[in-house]
Amino acid sequence: MHQRQAIIERIRRISAGVQRLELAVEPPQQALSGGQFFLARTTAAYDPYLREAWLPVALNDKTIIVERPTRYQYLPNQVVDLLGPLGRPFPLRDSARTLLLIAYEATPSIFLLMLQSALARNSAATLVLIGQARQYPLEALPSALEVIRAEHHETWAERAQHIAWADQIFAVAPPPYDVPAYMRLLEDAQRVRHAVSAELLYGIFQPPMPCGIGACQACLVRLQNGDEVPACTDGMAFDLTRVNLLQNLADSAGA
């Protein structure tokens, strides 16, 4: 983990709601894999106080590309303070030949870096965009990717088949929609496959992360074995068979 300054070299708007920032970063911060992220600060002032999670979508020679909502304004040559890389890479199995990626009401940006590796080794991948995720520009996605757009989970007609043949499944949804979506997905998987093995089905948890280093204990995810682990160090992807979804659902509901 490092704290370094990066420079925004280029800003490109890829849709009405999404812009890509190309950041010149120092070598230690180029060594990252899909699923890892940075905590970024764009101002020396303290408003906003906490850093923001920035997820790289692509790596170039000396730059990384992150996606940010267009409601945030950035300028070329702007200096950004980056803490990271943080978190664990998505546990993409070497033997996984068919991937199912599901974005519920969230951009699929988080999957893009992992997709580069998966498609490079000729894995087949299907991306399902549900709800607001359908607004993501398809031209920004790899051409080798199969994309399905559904209004909501129930209108994703082929989900049983997709869940059945996938070697690994990764799902993302923004809090507080994440846990209910993952519970529904886990139920579908258990019904379709009868048994959901370990390392098959992953949900991505993105709670607010003040420290990024596992110190503040604010981003804990509850596991079935009673452990509570920081999403910033042990995640953001968690095996849904290990997560205590009921308890995490109670957390989301403010119980």
Binding site: L50, L220, D251
Partner: peptide, 23 residues
């Protein structure tokens, strides 16, 4: 002690509110 249920981080103007439950 277990982590607090519900929201644990609320951003404030130039600050933050944290409710971890002191796990």
């Amino acid at each position: 002690r277990r982590a607090a249920s519900g929201t644990r981080v609320v951003p404030l103007d130039s600050g933050v509110l944290i409710h971890t439950g002191l796990p």
